[in-house]
Amino acid sequence: MPRVLAPFPAPALRLRRVALCAALALAAACGWSGAEEEDVGGAPGAPTGLTAEAGSATSVHVMWNVTARAHAYEVYRGITKVGEVTGPRHMVDVTRLRPSTLYVFTVRARDADGRLGPPSRQVRARTPADVADDHSAPTRPSTPAGRTAGSRALQLSWSASRDDRDVVSYDIHQGAARIHSVSGDQTAAVVTGLRPGTSYAFTVRARDAAGNVSPASTTVRLTTPGTDDGRATAPTGFRATSHREDGAYHVDLSWVPPRVDGEITEYQIQLDGRAVTSLLYGGNAPRDRAAHSFYVGQVAGATHRVRVRAMLPDGIWGGFSAERTVTTGARR
């Protein structure tokens, strides 16, 4: 999933270290340092890389890094729990806040057995003053631009929007999904955690203190250099057999979902070189092993080639599994 780190140097820009994740999206980790937390068992550790930016006079956008063994995250304002998100998500908008107020936030990770880890470090964010009767959105961010920075990162920049009061924040979107918010004095960022040889599309929107949102900027489309053989994002342990039922033959598949940052809810099955089935899961997407069976005809002895791939949380197709050959009516 994409991560956004410190903005790249640019003349006349006030840049601060930022972090960004996607979402499938999506998300990755904010404030990412390049080191992955080691999974050694037990309760989850304290979330790292916590950031908080005011999104309007009454909301703050809170983000943090991926935490090993986390099944869900609890978000606290002071000692009060104000939000909870499931493991694939690493961001939340805390709303119903007071204007011109300083708030303190922490996050705790909880594993699938309900064990709660220690709190993250505290971060502070001050909401701007409220603006009465403000119904005018900022102008759209102009001249968005980007360039690749290796096979797994790219640099984004845009020109500041105008508002009759002040621009409080900018929302960055990957495709249709908002993947982060940065403060209104930032006009550049570095997106990391990308895949080699992959095309991405980003837009930016400006937001004022009243929560009015500008139209989207024009789209920045970039393709990271290099090639991606797909092995890191392909389903593994792929198996294919057939069975006969009610006078017809069916192909039975099973596989292990790829290990990626986020939940996989969509798969595409390819039969004999063409896509024939799409699987969509709701809130119970398989994590350990997925399975599916589909009709292939009434002829015994027909041989088929089959493979599967996953739609990753960042909205990009992953690599195909190994291809298997299955013959209807063959003995297992």
Rank of each mutant, 00 (worst) to 15 (best):
R195G: 05
R195W: 00
R195Q: 09
P196Y: 02
G197K: 12
T198G: 09
T198R: 06
Y200T: 01
Y200E: 02
Y200N: 01
Y200S: 04
Y200G: 04
A201K: 00
A201H: 02
A201Q: 00
F202Y: 15
F202L: 10
T203N: 06
V204E: 09
V204Y: 15
V204G: 13
R205W: 08
R205A: 11
R205M: 05
A206C: 15
A206L: 14
A206R: 15
R207N: 10
R207M: 10
D208W: 01
D208M: 01
D208L: 06
A209I: 03
A210R: 04
A210Q: 03
A210P: 00
A210C: 10
G211W: 08
G211P: 07
N212T: 07
N212P: 04
N212K: 00
N212A: 05
V213T: 09
S214L: 01
P215A: 13
P215R: 10
A216S: 14
A216L: 02
A216V: 01
S217M: 11
T218K: 06
T219V: 06
T219I: 08
T219C: 04
T219W: 08
V220H: 09
R221K: 13
R221V: 13
R221H: 11
T223Q: 15
T223K: 14
T223D: 09
T224A: 02
T224F: 03
T224V: 01
T224R: 02
T224L: 11
P225M: 14
P225G: 13
G226M: 02
G226Y: 02
G226E: 09
T227C: 01
T227F: 02
D228T: 12
D228V: 11
D228F: 12
D228C: 06
D229I: 05
D229H: 07
D229L: 06
D229Q: 07
D229G: 08
D229S: 03
G230A: 03
G230Q: 01
G230E: 07
R231I: 11
R231K: 14
R231S: 13
A232Q: 15
A232R: 15
T233Y: 09
T233A: 14
T233C: 09
T233M: 13
A234W: 10
A234D: 04
A234I: 07
P235E: 08
P235W: 09
T236Y: 08
T236G: 10
T236P: 07
T236C: 10
G237A: 07
G237C: 08
G237Y: 05
G237F: 09
G237K: 08
R239P: 05
R239H: 12
A240M: 06
A240N: 11
T241G: 13
T241M: 12
T241K: 15
T241W: 13
T241D: 14
S242Y: 03
S242H: 04
S242I: 05
S242C: 01
S242R: 05
H243I: 11
H243D: 11
H243T: 12
R244I: 12
R244P: 11
R244L: 15
R244W: 13
R244H: 15
R244A: 15
R244N: 12
E245D: 14
E245I: 13
E245R: 15
D246T: 04
D246C: 05
D246F: 06
G247F: 03
G247A: 08
A248F: 07
H250Q: 05
H250C: 00
H250L: 14
H250R: 13
V251P: 04
V251H: 03
D252L: 12
D252Q: 13
L253D: 02
L253V: 02
S254R: 00
